[in-house]
């Protein structure tokens, strides 16, 4: 049986059809959450944002007009929400020290390729340990796909400041990860 088209399903959603809504939910949930994860680099936050987008979709279904496709609507909603999260919510987050992660970053150099999972974690943690402003700018540029100019305008900073923060971020990451990078490349 061919898949019911998105637009057909969304029209049903507009009439309050929860079954159609569930179908749309399941069709894109994992793709959206994964995309969101590449933006915010935190699994819990990624799921939260994705669920918020769906909840918004249901609550505002009467006012939402899809111009292109539902899929691209959902993906750009995720992107906007993620960027807003990085801009406004991330700086407010209470810094919770994840102790095992701190040990990971300070104590370990990875030699084995099969340590890839811990290595991934270490990179994530290193990014998370950047100073707040640095991290925000790094994430916006690197994962939010924004140019320096866009970031500068958005955060009300000069392009020069954004550049400086980026080079601080990169230097710090390089310092934290240099030996791991070497090991990783040598194998």
């Amino acid at each position: 049986m061919p898949e019911t088209s998105d637009i057909f399903l969304f029209n049903k959603v507009k009439n309050g059809d929860t079954v159609a809504f569930e179908e749309i939910f399941r069709r894109y949930y994992n793709d959206l959450a994964r995309y969101c994860f590449t933006l915010v680099r935190d699994e819990t936050i990624a799921e939260e944002i994705t669920q918020e987008v769906y909840i918004y979709l249901w609550e505002k279904k009467d006012n939402i007009e899809i111009s292109s496709s539902l899929k691209s609507y959902l993906f750009s909603a995720i992107r906007n929400k993620s960027i807003n999260y990085i801009k406004y919510e991330l700086p407010k987050q209470r810094i919770l020290i994840d102790i095992s992660d701190t040990v990971l970053v300070e104590g370990t150099v990875f030699h084995e390729k099969n340590d890839i999972k811990r290595l991934k974690k270490k990179i994530q943690v290193s990014i998370n340990q950047l100073p707040e402003k640095c991290k925000q700018i790094f994430l916006l540029s690197r994962y939010g796909g924004m140019t320096y100019k866009e970031i500068a305008e958005d955060l009300d900073l000069s392009v020069k400041t954004v550049e400086n923060q980026m080079s601080i971020a990169l230097k710090k990451l390089r310092d934290l990860l240099e030996s791991d990078l070497k090991n990783y490349l040598n194998e």
Partner: peptide, 23 residues
């Protein structure tokens, strides 16, 4: 590529649990 490792494209989210929450 190295930094990109952290994005972990293989991560799988629990759809059922998510749906339960949203619904």
């Amino acid at each position: 590529a190295f930094i990109e490792l952290s994005s972990d494209p293989t991560v799988v989210f629990d759809e059922d649990k998510a749906w339960d929450r949203v619904s």
